[in-house]
Design a protein around this nucleic acid. Structure first.
Lengths: 137, 137
DNA sequence: TCAAACCTTCTCATTGATGTGCAGGTCAAG
DNA sequence: CTTGACCTGCACATCAATGAGAAGGTTTGA
């Protein structure tokens, strides 16, 4: 498929797809006219990349990690170097740490929101006036 | 405490602490000579900030979220605006999504590492390797 | 008291990562 | 021929963080 289709199907901009190719995250064939021609699997791959970037992994790491996971489930063994294995182990640990931290903060925010709602309900039990205390930001 | 002490206790640079103050993430008193004087609670706060940034939250959001969590457990109600509440709900959801994605990727990497180790064990079966199937996380 | 070592202040500039805008040109279809 | 999708390449934007330099405060010991 061409870049416009891939952009639409992944919700990214064409520009960004070219950027990811420039960064070595995705590849493409070229048609005779020079247009990029993407494989079907690129859709999943781009979504995967978006998620990994959002999770805080730098492109440098994604470049190493991605070839190991063909699609988000299937696994391909491709004789990685010891260095790559160590990188993956490190990233797995970093992910685990991030998860723990995110869980703590998600819970803290949830608890806070519950407390706020309880306070609101107590402050205005009969009058539903949401902007009574609204001031600056 | 002064900035050097805080830097040492949080593992950040003095420069970064000034930057966080500039960004409105932390505050400080000033001594008569103009030196910053940090409260004890700043240690936790800075660690919290590091974690939230690492989790992918921008300073703009942290600035809103942080005052709601005095230390990583205690919660203070401070009459937030509806806008802030919506922001917090959004961030909580984004965190939950990030957690799900990180878990998927962490598991994928773990599985991959297991498979790689199995392949290595098969390639070199005479090497005594008692913990061949050791997996973590 | 002086001086050296160290800490702090502020400010301007820069880096690195992720991404976007845009100009100028090519290609293909109506 | 016009329109729209695509190409390359350069520049710009944003955000987090850092470097460097100049000036001044603090401490300690000769």
């Amino acid at each position: 498929m061409r870049i416009g289709t891939l952009a639409e199907r992944t919700g990214t901009s064409r520009r960004l797809l070219r950027y990811y190719e420039e960064q070595g995250l995705i590849g493409s064939q070229r048609s005779a006219n020079g247009y990029r021609d993407y494989a079907e699997s690129c859709v999943d791959k781009v979504i995967q990349i978006r998620g990994l970037l959002d999770a805080g992994l730098p492109t440098r790491v994604i470049r190493e990690v991605l070839p190991c996971m063909d699609t988000p489930r299937a696994i391909r063994i491709s004789a990685p170097t010891e260095e790559t294995i160590a990188l993956l182990e490190g990233e797995r640990d970093r992910m685990a740490e991030r998860i723990r931290f995110l869980e703590r903060n998600r819970d803290a925010i949830s608890e806070y929101l519950v407390a706020v709602r309880a306070a609101q309900a107590e402050a205005a039990p009969q009058t539903p006036n949401p902007s009574e205390a609204a001031v600056s930001a």
